[in-house]
Design a protein around this nucleic acid. Structure first.
Lengths: 323, 323
DNA sequence: ACGTGCCATTGACACGTGCAAGTAGACCGC
DNA sequence: GCGGTCTACTTGCACGTGTCAATGGCACGT
């Protein structure tokens, strides 16, 4: 490379050795450096616009400040809850002097990680043990799940939905599942939590409604669901997007909400308050988790074991007009 | 570090020199290597699980494959259109052997970039010239705008809204602006485009409606807007989220859509089809842009100048029930 | 027998950094 | 006057990699 300013340049400019420059710039307390010399170095560095070259630093053995987050199958634009968590985590990690880097991961994570040399890798693929160990040996760097305790997190929201609806006197529940196949695994978790909570509370077996993408079709399916005996009086949706579809179907077919059925979603989507009627939902406070998780990751980056931190299972209901 | 497998280890394992190992692993065509030796190296590397150490490579002068995207003020969860573009760009760059890394940027971009040593930096702060040159000297790496031609892109959508509504016979337009202060600059661009297009088409001066967060309040403001003389018969919203707010306000106050006013948004939000009534919107096809931009960035990463590529100005209307 | 050309392989350097170990001079106590 | 301590530096190594230039062996033509 042509134009890189190195610490040798700074040393020459200041009329000192490279070691002295390094000591000053890194604030080494074990050395005694007179203020005059210190200023000479600082001035020279400033004048030349010196920036230490990361790769050389790492090569020398410095610990990387990078945390690499890999979320295969999760597009940035898609899951705004995950995106929110990642955003918050990035801020929290910065407090610990770490830098979160979110890579759009498909299969070829190797390439980036070679250049990145991160201190820690957080992978959402880590849930399945096979892919997990595969990653471990690919990186020779600590690999941890990106969303620890995700199953409990997902189930907790569904549990909160059912408990809330039961508390409001609803008895016959339906679960509105998404049709997209890639969501099937997480939907399955919600569905199980809804059934077991219903059973625990002594409610009849919940019904299942897979909501198609087509709006008119969704209306027909909702109508036929309401013909069941006993007819459902409440719908727990997989998330707020599915809940929007249910609300649209109800509106189109003239089903009063919450008069005939109550509808509740999950995630507290920003558009929820603007639905017709305004959508009740369920939300988990992740600020505590994010702070603890960031601290744990920082520990791992320093070579420690890192406490196990899990996403919250408890979820709060945000009550609006649809229930 | 203790456990790192280096090419020296591989060489020892294979009973060859490090140079030979390097030639084999990098597929250097200028060397003649007998198949037997080649296999010996490959086997040894495989057996030891060798992965080249990126920082050392970079130090030696290799070009980084990383493209760093900095979007201060843009949270991952917030702007799903930008997120979609970034997602697509990441995929496209991979075709060129580059890896896009999206950093949640606030002010402290330095830290990460030191560790990252990217080949190119794409910054959305680049629009203002001051911050731009500041970044340039911070990185000593090519810095380019993350969303080139953004102003034209934003204005184009607004122009398409007005042209479409005029074509459908609407004459008195209102612009629904967001209330969030950080959106004011971009909103201003849309607003200007709407007024100038209306003027060009011979429509009366459009009205301005700043949509408050509170739903009831929004209803009142819409009602009073409709009292104007001449009364508006169409609303161009800043984006689909604002359009949702307008639809909610119209529904709450009993204003028929599209009977009395037509409503059109921007962005083709995934929930748009589920609005009441389904939301018409405007969408720009960015696939062509993304492909060209990725190629340009790849050129810059190779040290070339890089062709100037701009976001599309043309936008297509997605017609639904609200117009 | 000997230069010539080819093949397979290797020794050595450079990249920029952090830091351990060394050194030259000044000052001090006896 | 001499060993010892302190200050203010510098010399030099190591990190892991890619690659130039050199080397030694072998076959071939004369």
């Amino acid at each position: 490379m042509s134009g890189r300013v190195t610490s040798t340049d700074v040393a020459r400019e200041a009329g000192l050795s490279r070691a002295t420059v390094s000591y000053v710039l890194n604030g080494d307390t074990r050395q005694t450096i007179p203020e005059a010399t210190r200023q000479r170095v600082l001035d020279a560095a400033e004048r030349l616009g010196y920036r230490p070259y990361g790769p050389a630093r790492l090569l020398r053995g410095a610990r990387s400040t990078l945390v690499l987050m890999l979320t295969p199958g999760l597009q940035h634009a898609t899951d705004f809850v995950a995106a929110g968590i990642v955003t918050q985590l990035g801020l929290a990690l910065r407090e610990h002097g770490l830098h979160l880097v979110w890579q759009l991961g498909t299969e070829d994570e190797r390439g980036a990680s070679v250049d990145l040399a991160p201190a820690v890798v957080l992978s959402s693929a880590g849930e399945e043990e096979a892919a997990f160990t595969d990653l471990r040996q690919q990186f020779s760097v600590p690999v941890r799940p990106a969303f620890p305790g995700l199953d409990g997190f997902l189930a907790g929201a569904a549990t909160a939905q059912v408990e809330y609806l039961a508390g409001r006197g609803r008895r016959v529940l339906a679960y509105a599942a998404p049709s997209r196949p890639e969501l099937q695994p997480t939907s399955e978790i919600r569905w199980r939590a809804i059934r077991s909570t219903a059973e625990r509370l002594g409610l009849p077996e919940p019904l299942l409604l897979t909501v198609p993408d087509d709006r008119a079709q969704a209306g027909r399916e909702l109508a036929s669901l309401l013909d069941a005996d006993p007819a459902p009086d409440a719908v727990c949706a997989y998330n707020d997007e599915v809940a929007f579809a249910v609300l649209a179907a109800a509106h189109d077919t003239g089903v009063p909400v919450p008069g005939r059925i109550a509808v509740i979603g999950v995630d507290n989507h920003p558009l929820g308050p603007l639905a017709v009627p305004a959508l009740s939902t369920v939300e988990s406070d992740v600020t505590e988790f994010v702070a603890a998780f960031a601290a744990s990751v920082a520990g791992i980056a320093r070579g420690e074991e890192g406490a196990e931190v899990l996403l919250p299972e408890r979820a709060q209901v945000v009550e609006r007009a649809s229930t």
